[in-house]
Design a protein around this nucleic acid. Structure first.
Lengths: 145, 145
DNA sequence: CTAGGACCTGACGTTGACGTCAGGGTCAAG
DNA sequence: CTTGACCCTGACGTCAACGTCAGGTCCTAG
């Protein structure tokens, strides 16, 4: 059985975070007679999983909805629906991130092309800043006005 | 020239958000003699771009660091470095999201497999909750304790 | 037995991106 | 000329996931 500090260190989070997770019902702990928390090794993996879901934009409540699969080992249809919903949400996020990434990457490509020479503003660079959908407009993201 | 309400509607954000962007230096506006804001069409695209970067986890300050490419049309080496940094951050996020997504997807697959029958907890379902790295441990994410 | 590092429970502070309310101008239509 | 939708500037409220501080307990090495 691990003490809270050990779990925190192994999972790469703060002690405060673990107490917060308990508060939110995401992580239980046994208690010693004196009231100190004791965790099984499994807690480390669980904390990492929670962190992963947080990173995916889920809230504590979302995670709480999704975690029961852990206890029952099997999902109800309603839970499956929620799981699928969260998965789809993540898919949407990935799509958005990919779009944003591409946009930055294009700005970088064009920037790298023009910086060496060091000459003035390039239409292409400005162009890269515009949303793909409105490229023809040739206006977006240039100095407003 | 668009009024603030129109820009907000077209970009799918609140009027308050636009005023906030101005406060953060992310979006300028001309003013009518009476002090009302007027935006060019380009503002809509710009707002969408800012939203996209927010969705990618950038803060207002991050966006502010990245936006100047818009004004100069070309990036300084320092700016290119920041852009690359943000792009790499997004890449890391995408990787994490993909991992989280896969984990949820696996839970769903196994859940779908066992729910129809409606019998008890399945080891596989529990297994899917564990981090791939610690699969051999066969402990993580089961009822803690 | 004692020092000090780890742990405990409140409970208030923080940060970012807005929401919301108060109190008051603006302006096209009827 | 008045009504009602839209706009303005403060300025305080919100929510999540913790950070941090206070004041006290536990426990392990020396």
């Amino acid at each position: 059985m691990l003490r809270i500090g050990e779990v925190a260190a192994r999972a790469g989070v703060s002690v405060r975070a673990l107490r917060y997770y308990e508060e939110q019902g995401l992580l239980e702990a046994e208690r010693t007679p004196s009231g100190q928390r004791r965790y099984p090794e499994s807690a480390v993996g669980r904390v990492r999983f929670v962190q992963q879901l947080y990173a995916a934009g889920l809230t504590s409540r979302d995670v709480l909805e999704v975690l029961p699969c852990v206890h029952t080992g099997v999902a109800t249809p309603a839970m499956l629906a929620r799981l699928a919903e969260q998965r789809d949400g993540i898919d949407r996020q990935i799509a958005e991130l990919t779009a944003a990434r591409e946009r930055l990457a294009e700005i970088i490509r064009i920037g790298e092309q023009y910086v060496p020479g060091g000459h003035g503003p390039s239409e292409e660079a400005v162009d890269a800043c515009r949303p793909a959908a409105s490229r023809p407009a040739a206006e977006a993201l240039r100095p407003v006005g």
